[in-house]
Nucleic acid binder design. Sequence first.
DNA 1: GTCAACGACTTGTATGTACAAGTCATCCTG
DNA 2: CAGGATGACTTGTACATACAAGTCGTTGAC
Lengths: 263, 263
Amino acid sequence: MTTPLHLALAGELRQRIREGHIAVGESLPSEAQLCQEFSVSRGPIRQALAALRDEGLIGGGKGKRPVVLDAVPSQPFESFLSFTRRAEITGHVPGQRLQEIALRRPDPTIAAALQLDPDALAVQLLRLRLLDGRPAMLERMTYREEIGRPLLGADLDAGSIYAYLTEQGVDLHAARHTFDAVAADPTDARLLEVAEESPLLRERRVTTDSVGTPLECSEDRYRPDVATVTVSNTRSSRADLTRTGSAWTGEFAPSSAAEVAGA
Amino acid sequence: MTTPLHLALAGELRQRIREGHIAVGESLPSEAQLCQEFSVSRGPIRQALAALRDEGLIGGGKGKRPVVLDAVPSQPFESFLSFTRRAEITGHVPGQRLQEIALRRPDPTIAAALQLDPDALAVQLLRLRLLDGRPAMLERMTYREEIGRPLLGADLDAGSIYAYLTEQGVDLHAARHTFDAVAADPTDARLLEVAEESPLLRERRVTTDSVGTPLECSEDRYRPDVATVTVSNTRSSRADLTRTGSAWTGEFAPSSAAEVAGA
DNA sequence: GTCAACGACTTGTATGTACAAGTCATCCTG
DNA sequence: CAGGATGACTTGTACATACAAGTCGTTGAC
C-alpha cells in the first residue's frame, strides 16, 4: 500500500507551507526546480500543485510562479461531513449527547429523499452536539437500514459516526448541503438552550455513495453564536485537471463573532 | 483565442449528458473510446472527465467506467458569486433595487477584512434582490475603492455586478463564505417584508484576486422561504488528494419548501 | 449449480517530450 | 531618464508510452 507520488509530494509541500518554510506571499520553487529536487517528472508535481491550489493554499497563473496565500488550511471532504473532525481541526473539544435512536418507517419526505419504498424501515437518531461543553448543534439523521443498523449497537456518545461508518467500509462519496434559517421550535430551544423562535442556521444534507445512491439524510440546526459554516471556492485556473475546486472548512466562531456591519 | 481542447471536450460531454444522450445511470464510453472518437490523446480526455467529476455530473473509480449521476447540473465558480446567474440557471427572474451607494470610510471591521488603512475610502452599496418580483435577499457590499469606483457611474439596477466587474477585467478568483442565522433588524424587516426578529440566513463573503488580495466583502441576508444556498462536494476519487472538489449551486427554493422533519 | 480462477478491459499513475503563451527583469533606444 | 523591445524563464496544453491496480464477465473445476 504505497501512497502515490503526487500525494506524497502534495503532503510534503503542504507541510513546508504550514511550517512556514515558505512564507506567506513568497513564491514556491518553479515546477522545473521541484522536478529536480524530488527527481520526478512534471506530471506528479503538477498534480500536487493542483491539489494545493484547490485547497486554497497557493495561487498563481500562467507564467506566474505559485504564491503561498494567507489561507485557512482547509481540510478536505470529511471536514464537513464530520462535526467531530471540524471541531478537532479548529481546536475545540467536540461532544455529543444521544437523545434518541430508533428503527422506524420514516416520514414520506425523508423516504423520498433516500429513494426508499414508502414502507421501508430506516434508522433515525436525534443527537445534541457540544463544543467545549456548550450546546452547539442539534442533528436529526436518517440512514438507510442496511447502513444504519450497526449504529443501533454502537456507542454513539463515544465519537464520530462518520469515522465509524467509513471504518465499516461504507463509501460516503458525495453530499449536497442546503442552508437556510429557521426559528427554534420548543425542542430546539430546550436542548440548545436558546429562546423559542430565536434564529438557527439549518443545514439539510443528503449523502450518497459513488454511484449516486442516497445513504443518509440529515437536518442539523446550529446555534449561530457558537457554530457557523464556512466554505471557500476558487476559480480553477489550473492545471492538470480543469476543475473548479472548492475546499470546505467548517469553522466554529467564538460567540464574540465580529459583525460585518452593513452600510 | 482558441479554447483549450480539454475545455471543449468537457463542454461536449456535458452537453451530451444534459441532453440525455447518455441516460442517468448509464456509463460513458471508456477513455480509450473517447480518444478514438475525438482523435485526441488521453490527457485532455482525462482533464475533461475530471472536470465533470468535480461538478458532480459523473462518478466512477479505478477500473470502473464513469457513470452519469442524477445530479443537479452545478455551475462552477460564478454561480455563487452571482445572484443573477443563479437565478437564471434555476429559471427564476432576478431583479434588484438599489437602496444606496456611497464612497465612504468603512467600519473598522470591514476595513480590516479588506486589509485597508483605517482611513481609506471604499465603495459601499445596499441593494435589495428580487426573485420573480418578490424580495429575496438584502446585500450589503463593500469594494476597495479602485475596484468599486466605476460602479458609482454604472446602472446597478440593470444587472449583475459580478458580470460587470469581470468584463472590466477584475479577476475575482477565490471567495470565502460564512453562513449563520440572524434575526431581522428593522431595516431587513421593512425591505424584505418580513416580521422583525424573524430568522434570516446570513452569508458573509470575502472575495480575493489570484494573489490573495481581498477585493470585496459582502453581507447578504436571505429570506429563507424564498432563497436557500446549496452546495455539493465530492470525495475526490482520484484518491485522496485530500481535497475535496466541490461545485456550488445556489438554488432557490419555492416557498412551499418541503420540510425534512425531525425524529 | 456454485464458486474460484482467469483474462480482457478500464482507470490511475508516472515519465518524457514538445510547443504555446504569459510574465518579468534587463537592456537598449530615443 | 523614461519607455519600449528583447529574451530568459515559467506555466498551460498536448501527445506518446508504459505499467500498476482494480473491475467484471467468462470459463472451468468441483
